[in-house]
């Protein structure tokens, strides 16, 4: 992860990343907790539960997963899909079920709901690999 340690520090964000109500049930949404300019994680909502992962396909280093802003799911929204090569992942535990990453899993982000808000509960490392000049 040394590439990720440049300008942005690893911290537990001191504010929620968003609200449960911002995500339609069964849908996904990307977030940029450290303000890096890119969605470095995403959350999938199932009813009152949320499942959060880094926006990094375990197949290729640095591969972002959506095909469009906030679109991290397959057609019937039963699984998470990486739109780089179609790998499918279990929503609940992030394990790859089909495609290029079999045997690998998405990198989970520890989150919890407090009064309808989504909080990251553990130190969050920068996810955007590019070195920034300012």
């Amino acid at each position: 992860m040394t590439l990720h340690q440049r300008r942005f520090e690893t911290v537990v964000p001191d504010r929620p990343i968003g609200r449960l109500d911002d995500i339609a049930d069964g849908h996904s949404r990307g977030f940029d907790p450290l303000g890096e300019g890119r969605d470095t994680m995403f959350v999938v909502r199932r009813g009152g539960s949320v499942f959060a992962y880094r926006n990094h396909c375990p197949h290729y280093d640095r591969a972002r997963m959506a095909w469009k802003k906030d679109e991290f799911m397959n057609g019937d929204r039963s699984q998470i899909m990486c739109s780089a090569h179609g790998a499918l992942f279990s929503i609940e535990d992030g394990a790859c079920t089909q495609g290029p990453c079999l045997g690998l899993s998405l990198y989970p982000v520890a989150v919890e709901l407090r009064d309808g808000e989504i909080w990251i509960t553990e130190p969050y490392a920068p996810g955007f690999w590019r070195e920034r000049s300012a």
Partner: peptide
């Protein structure tokens, strides 16, 4: 290259 919902770049 772009990601796509066709499961390929």
């Amino acid at each position: 290259y772009f990601n796509s919902p066709l499961g390929t770049h």
